[in-house]
Amino acid sequence: MKTVYLAIKYLAILLWSSFVLFPFLWAVTTSFKTANGVTGGATWIPWLQYEPSLQGWQSLFGGSGGTDITGPYFNSIIVTGSASLISIVLGTLAAYGLSRFTFKAGFIRNADITFFFISQRIMPPIVLAIPFFLLLRQLGLLDTLAGLILVYIALLLPIAVWVMVDFFNNVPRQLDEMAWLDGCTPMTTFYRVILPNSVPGLIVAGMFCLIFGWNDFFFAFTLTFTDTQLLPVAIVALNSSVTPWWSLSASALISVAPLILLAFVVERFLSRGGLAGAVR
């Protein structure tokens, strides 16, 4: 009984792992192919089944047949990083407020305000593409990093608020009350007592912000012209009527790499049980 159970368990894990890895392995082998290698069918092993070439990788860094992604890479880092940071600062403050104090305005209560934040996620980017275009045009921020950061804040702030409200609701109020007794104001309580105890929450919020920011496509696509392309836009520019599968695979691999590192960080906290309060 026990061995059967173990066999099933490892089989399931193995199956899911191959499902997860499949597209990556395929992208790795495809990135070393040329047109003949691609049309030759579903081959996996270089030299044996197809003649490998570095063309796909070279094209990423200025070689022919691809697009140079160094500029977009930096842009993506700047936009995602700044927007995430700002969102987390604003979102943590707002979440603390919503968790500790009572707000009332007419029929609006705390829960409604929280819902308002989260409901921003319901809007598909496509709905807002043109209005945002006009807004940024009015502000003179079209095709600038600042403009994109602004839009991404609207995208990421709701996530930060959602994660942090839940987190603070699980932080015992006694902590606050003890600080108040010591004569702290709410502000000093927040950053002397609460923040140091909020690292797990901040990690989760930060992770979600980075994921959703780094991976957004349609806003970056609509609101930029030539100066501030972001990574997904630069890579999708390879996916049109005639697709160079090799450069596409290479650039896809290189663009997902940084966030995969994030998976390791998240796992560390997860295994230590540190994320417990952050996601309940």
Binding site: V20, F22, N215, L231, I235, N239, T243, L248, S251, V256
Partner: peptide, 22 residues
């Protein structure tokens, strides 16, 4: 645990392109 987290970290539009070739 790390492996199972990875897909979420990848850019949907880019992975969709890979999936299309898959």
């Amino acid at each position: 645990r790390v492996l199972f987290l990875v897909p979420m970290m990848t850019t949907p539009v880019i992975m969709s392109v890979i999936w299309r070739t898959v």
